[in-house]
Write a protein that binds this DNA or RNA. Structure first.
Length: 311
DNA sequence: TCTCGAACTCGTCATGGTCC
DNA sequence: GGACCATGACGAGTTCGAGA
């Protein structure tokens, strides 16, 4: 991570108010403190959550700084905490601390940042669009799926065109010699089949692959319980009774949970990277603004001195 | 070429927040 | 209240560059 100039920039764009919980708690993205005369900080006051404001010219550590946001002038108390961090000490702290104590969402933060001040920065898309993107590279309903054991099984629904998540469907699986879709890696006895329906919606089916030596396959039900997100269905054997089947069922649930969490972790990391990139861009922009303002200040000073000399 | 340590990646678990 | 999601934390594996 390259070092950032200026004062500590909180992830939510606010001035450091010593909140205990911050997305930067891992430390890897903490900006380094560099000594500069003028610090430009973007802050989001609690009264106007989505409106960035700028704190300028915090030259003396302890003083009142003027925050201008959307045409409004606010005055906040700002102090330096000895470690180079600006600390806001006004009465809003309790409220802000309450808000910041909640775990942040990179997506929310980034979307706030992009909508508030940088229209050019792409928002992190909502899940709907992500799902749509995924389904666009999927195929239609496969008749054959390959299990984690390299086994190919045929899914022969009573009416594949009506294989929807509405209501219950019974499908049968039979061994077949053709492969079509590779299933997720699963422990012995289970597999997760991912496919796309004719209407483009993505489906995950957790399927136990306990095919008897005689090739006999029992019937499974595909159901879409309300607890599962759209596009995810569970395949459960009909009439689970034995402890072994219960164990298999819980193993399947666990695998599905792990798979989802794996995906969630990937997404989370991707969002985090995007968020850090966004912050770096903002830092670069603000540094540039800072330079411009310094130059402007210099020229105004010179102009003023020149005028004073001539008078 | 081998070794070592830092950095990075990924999967999993724990936990708090949100939704129904 | 339970299911689900988002994310921090942690450990294991991988990569890469520097030094012997």
């Amino acid at each position: 991570m390259p070092g950032f100039g200026g004062k500590q920039l909180e992830m939510d764009g606010s001035i450091d108010d010593k909140s205990e919980d911050s997305p930067s708690s891992s430390g890897s993205s903490q900006p380094q403190n560099l000594s500069t005369v003028v610090h430009t900080i973007t802050a989001v006051p609690t009264a106007i959550p989505n409106q960035p404001v700028q704190v300028q010219s915090v030259i003396q550590p302890t003083q009142q700084s003027v925050i201008q946001a959307a045409g409004q002038i606010q005055t906040v108390q700002v102090e330096e905490d000895g470690e180079g961090h600006l600390v806001r000490t006004d009465p809003d702290i309790e409220k802000r601390r309450e808000i910041l104590s909640r775990r942040p969402s990179y997506r929310k933060i980034l979307n706030e940042l992009s909508s508030a001040e940088a229209p050019g920065i792409a928002k992190i898309e909502e899940d709907k669009e992500e799902e749509a993107a995924i389904t666009s590279i999927q195929t239609t309903i496969p008749s054959y799926v390959q299990t984690s054991a390299g086994q190919t099984i045929q899914i022969a629904a009573a009416n594949q065109n009506e294989l929807t998540t509405q209501g219950l469907q019974t499908i049968t699986m039979t061994n077949a010699g053709q492969g079509a879709v590779t299933a997720a890696a699963m422990p012995a006895g289970t597999t997760i089949v991912q496919y796309t329906q004719g209407d483009g919606s993505q489906q995950f089916v957790t399927v136990p692959v306990s095919i008897s030596p005689a090739g006999e396959v029992q019937a499974y039900q595909i159901r879409a319980p309300s607890s599962l997100p759209a596009g995810v269905v569970m395949a459960t054997p009909t009439g689970i009774t034995s402890p072994q089947q219960l164990a298999e069922e819980s193993a399947r649930k666990r695998e599905l949970r792990l798979m989802k969490n794996r995906e969630a972790a990937r997404e989370c990391r991707r969002r985090k990277k995007e968020y850090v990139k966004c912050l770096e861009t903002r830092v670069a922009v603000l540094e540039q603004q800072n330079k411009t303002l310094i130059e402007e200040l210099k020229s105004l000073k010179e102009l003023y001195c020149h005028k004073a000399e001539t008078e």
